[in-house]
Amino acid sequence: MQNSIWQAEKKKILTRLSIAIYKMTDEQLISLLHLFKELNLKDNEKLLSMPKSHSDGVVAARDRQLLIARFFLLINQLSEADLLTFMNRYEQKRFAMLREFPRVPCNITVDLAADGRAINCSAMDISAGGMFVESCEPFTMNQAVSICFSVPENQLALKIKGRVVRLEQGGIGVQYESLTNYQIQIMKNMINRLQRQASSQYHID
């Protein structure tokens, strides 16, 4: 690839990665570190070392920022071939994470807060990465929202920050942002329960 074209393409890749990295959970950041290790980068052992984490797997805020800074140092040192290889593996990993827990139908009452408004509505389907919320209220693309709902089996109130990524007549698609490992596990358990309930409805003895 010609140098000028490659520099422009590299800038696009770095911008895209920057946005994605800052939104990643601790679990996803560790997964990204493993992708760098797969490249067998020499003289970068210190940058590739694993950060310390608490017993629940959460990385301390300071260590999280240092880890993100290390990512940018590594990315800027990659050759054209290594960066393209990394992006290919990153896309495969990202797709796998999105497909690991598919969207399932539900009927969950949620409290949605946006721009000072508090809206009581229903989630019609849910996944580990987002949900579709039924609402006639006006929203805009990329609008920040907060979602609060109860998890029946735990009797917990789960509050999640998100962003509007889809606008449809009668509702919006919301993508979660910055989930903790604890929240991710709760979501996975709830989705598995919903899938079992859906399967049992169609089970014939």
Rank of each mutant, 00 (worst) to 15 (best):
residue 31 S to C: 11
residue 109 T to Q: 13
residue 35 L to R: 09
residue 62 R to F: 10
residue 20 A to C: 06
residue 107 N to G: 10
residue 87 M to K: 14
residue 116 G to R: 06
residue 112 L to M: 12
residue 128 A to W: 04
residue 50 M to G: 01
residue 64 R to G: 02
residue 96 A to Y: 07
residue 50 M to K: 10
residue 119 I to P: 02
residue 105 P to I: 00
residue 18 S to R: 12
residue 76 N to E: 15
residue 67 L to I: 04
residue 49 S to E: 14
residue 6 W to S: 06
residue 112 L to N: 03
residue 30 I to Q: 09
residue 78 L to Q: 06
residue 54 H to R: 13
residue 122 S to G: 02
residue 31 S to T: 09
residue 109 T to A: 12
residue 21 I to G: 01
residue 49 S to P: 04
residue 24 M to T: 03
residue 34 H to S: 14
residue 77 Q to I: 01
residue 38 E to D: 13
residue 52 K to H: 10
residue 122 S to A: 09
residue 28 Q to Y: 08
residue 109 T to P: 03
residue 120 N to G: 06
residue 108 I to Y: 02
residue 14 L to V: 10
residue 26 D to T: 02
residue 50 M to D: 06
residue 46 K to N: 10
residue 12 K to H: 03
residue 115 D to Q: 14
residue 49 S to T: 11
residue 89 R to G: 15
residue 54 H to I: 05
residue 39 L to H: 07
residue 69 A to G: 08
residue 124 M to R: 15
residue 95 F to M: 14
residue 103 R to Y: 08
residue 56 D to C: 09
residue 54 H to Y: 09
residue 55 S to G: 05
residue 69 A to F: 05
residue 93 K to I: 00
residue 38 E to S: 15
residue 124 M to L: 14
residue 47 L to Y: 08
residue 5 I to Q: 13
residue 11 K to T: 12
residue 11 K to A: 15
residue 48 L to D: 10
residue 99 R to N: 09
residue 7 Q to M: 15
residue 60 A to C: 01
residue 87 M to C: 10
residue 12 K to G: 03
residue 5 I to F: 06
residue 106 C to W: 05
residue 50 M to Y: 08
